[in-house]
Simulated scan of single mutants.
Amino acid sequence: MDRRSVLAFLILAPAAVLATAWADLPPYLLQILALACTYAVPAIGLNLLLGYGGLVSLGHAAFVGLGGYALGLLTVEAGWSFWAALPLAPLVAGVAGALLGAVTLRLRSHFFMIATLAFGLVLHAVLNNWEGLTRGPVGLPGIPRPEALALFGLEIGFRRLPDFAAFAVGCTALAYGFSALVVRSDFGRMLEAIRQDEILAAAKGVDVARGKIVTFALAAAIAGFGGALKVSFLRVAAPASFEYAEGINLVLIVVLGGAGRLAGPLIGALLFVALPEALRVAAEWRLVFFGLALVILMRAAPDGVAGLIARGWAALRRRRAPA
């Protein structure tokens, strides 16, 4: 990232967290914001795979589940604190992503998609049936919210909804910043070369297999981090929260927001959560209208809403530019 981007991030990210904590928003809006963050973080990881690596993973929700259950088991069963268990959630998911990537990334196109979908289905079956470890369909209730932190003589708590929503915004900003660092680094440029022409990249000396595995591991680790955030928000880790349909939803969020654009997952997650809530007035027709709205959005913005905004901004700048 260039200096201006880093400076803007260092100013805007804390400002967004503080604005969320201090703004007098209704609890309903805070719930929507926190829920959107639980989808945005895994989608940021998937965007590395789909948008920048050109790899469509339909089982990304499995890594969200691994991170969520890792946090749940350590806090509920082992008695760890939230902050001690949090770093292990992305670690467990990242290791699983590296192992799965080493096996499945040899496959091409739809075979890779089927393999990732199969992994998601298998993991969901394990979570649903291994009652001795996961408690089966009931899941792990009672997952704690983050404990209060003492910084510079001030105690910062996360029990209240405004404070937890600010924590969720901070986690999303952290995932976004990490993704931006990866994309703007030499590794990100190598990943872009692999996506554009894998054979040419290999001929230029790029280790294609290693690059894909590292990308898969990073995407899975970010998803595991999002899983820890999700189960802390829901206060329970249950298999229903990580079924294969959630993996499809994550792909939809990335594509809707704009695959290959840093802001795409943020926009897509907000639309994915807010649109159905705005259409609740339509009762049983809500999902029909939601589907129509998605079709219209994709027709108007085939490269995602972020791409549509970028094109509109570029057109506005051209109009304002002197002849």
Rank of each mutant, 00 (worst) to 15 (best):
D2Y: 09
D2L: 02
R3M: 03
R4I: 14
V6A: 15
V6H: 11
A13C: 09
A15I: 13
V17W: 09
L18M: 14
A19T: 15
T20D: 12
A23L: 15
L25I: 12
L25W: 15
P27H: 14
L30H: 07
Q31R: 15
T38F: 09
T38C: 13
V41M: 06
A43D: 10
I44A: 01
G45Y: 07
L46N: 01
L46S: 08
N47W: 05
L50Y: 01
G51Y: 10
G51A: 03
Y52E: 04
V56W: 01
G59S: 10
G59V: 07
H60Y: 00
A61H: 07
V64N: 07
G65I: 05
L71Y: 02
G72M: 01
L73N: 06
V76E: 07
V76F: 07
V76G: 02
E77V: 05
W80Q: 04
F82Y: 14
L91M: 10
G94K: 01
V95A: 09
G97P: 00
L99E: 03
G101F: 13
F111L: 07
T116C: 10
T116K: 08
F119Y: 04
N128G: 14
N129D: 14
G132A: 11
G132C: 15
T134W: 06
V138R: 13
L140R: 09
L140W: 07
P141G: 11
G142Y: 04
P144H: 11
R145D: 06
A148C: 13
A148E: 15
A150F: 09
F152G: 00
F152E: 02
L154T: 15
F158H: 08
F158Q: 08
R160G: 13
A165R: 08
A166T: 13
A168I: 10
V169L: 09
C171Q: 01
C171M: 12
C171G: 00
A173Y: 01
A173S: 14
L174T: 12
L174S: 02
A175S: 02
G177A: 08
F178D: 00
L181C: 07
V183I: 15
R184A: 05
R184G: 10
M190V: 06
I194K: 03
L200V: 00
A203D: 09
V206D: 12
G211W: 09
K212A: 11
F216M: 11
A217N: 06
A219C: 00
G224P: 01
G227C: 02
K230M: 12
S232T: 09
A237N: 06
A238V: 03
A238W: 04
A240Y: 15
E243D: 13
E243I: 02
E243N: 08
L250G: 04
V251E: 10
L252T: 07
L252Q: 04
L252G: 11
L252P: 00
V255D: 03
G257Q: 10
G257D: 14
A259D: 05
R261I: 06
L262Y: 14
L262W: 05
I267S: 07
G268H: 08
G268D: 08
A269S: 15
F272K: 05
V273L: 08
A278I: 07
L279P: 00
L279A: 02
A282Y: 04
E284L: 07
R286V: 00
F289I: 05
G291P: 12
L292A: 08
L292D: 11
L297Q: 03
M298E: 00
M298L: 13
A300I: 03
A301Q: 12
G304R: 09
I309M: 15
R317V: 12
R318K: 14
R319M: 14
R320K: 14
A321Y: 12
